[in-house]
Design a protein around this nucleic acid. Structure first.
Length: 259
DNA sequence: ATGGTGGCACCGCCA
């Protein structure tokens, strides 16, 4: 069977509920990881997912951050947060689905290189790597999904010269992500599109017709440990939701595994 | 173009 896993930064799940529900009905993924839900848990629109046959788990806060995992299978061994502050907790959720660990993260954006928020971002990657070392093994099947707020290579942004030094595009933050990858993750999207430019998942609202003009960033990712990455058969970005009315600034990324 | 848009909460902050 094919296991379809997707990621979407909703930039408010309540504002984007129709887009998400329609997308689920059409694409029928086994797993959809959502970031920036921007809603407290008691206000999360859980029943909308249940009504179309999906489970959903979530960890959020008011206005900012918030993550959720939507699934066909029932989640087991749910972990919400990295046992830190409210901000940290609303950036991490994980569970096991049919023996596969799904980790959904919304990595801090960082604001600017000289801000403490950027240091917090770098520290977040270290804390996440420590979590992996402590609780998981790279020889087990793990899929790490999320808005990682890092474009890993020059090919992942529309203007690598102009954007160099941005909090999401500089050697230091790329190294921070790399150190987590080196624990045992493979970039499943890039595996299927090696060296292919203009593959973006985020388009700034402030840039007019950014999708049509291919002025974007690849910051939303699906990675997997070796065992499961070897079973991926396809990966793609669905730009159609970014062209709808009232879109999120991000769009859907999908990976498919034959398991 | 040193701007621009969008969500949410509250009259600024974050992306």
């Amino acid at each position: 069977m094919v296991l379809r896993v997707a990621s979407f930064n909703a930039n408010s799940i309540r504002t984007r509920l129709d887009i998400v529900i329609q997308w689920l009905k059409r694409h029928k993924p086994a797993i959809l990881c959502i970031q920036e839900t921007k809603v407290r848990d008691f206000e999360f629109p859980e029943s909308s997912f249940n009504e179309i046959g999906y489970h959903v788990i979530f960890k959020g806060q008011k206005s900012y951050n918030g993550v959720a995992i939507v699934s066909i299978e029932e989640p087991k061994s749910i972990i919400k947060g990295l046992e830190g502050t409210d901000d940290e907790d609303a950036r991490f959720i994980s569970a096991i689905y049919s023996g596969i660990t799904i980790i959904n993260t919304y990595v801090p954006q960082g604001y600017s290189i000289d801000s403490s928020k950027y240091q917090y971002k770098l520290q977040w990657f270290k804390k996440f790597r420590t979590f992996l070392e402590r609780y998981l093994s790279p020889s087990s099947p793990i899929i790490w999904v999320g808005d990682l707020n890092v474009a890993p290579e020059a090919i992942d942004v529309h203007d690598p010269k102009g954007l160099l030094g941005h909090v999401c595009f500089n050697p230091e933050v790329q190294q921070a992500l790399k150190e987590v990858k080196e624990w045992g993750f493979i970039d499943v999207f890039r595996k299927h599109h090696p060296g292919v430019p203009n593959k973006y998942t985020f388009f700034d609202y402030r840039v007019r017709n950014a999708v049509q003009r291919e002025i974007g960033w690849r910051v939303d990712h699906i990675l997997a440990t070796k065992l499961i990455a070897e079973k991926s058969v396809d990966a793609y970005i669905d730009l159609k939701p970014r062209l709808q009315e009232r879109p999120s600034d991000h769009t859907f990324v999908v990976a498919e595994f034959r398991i």
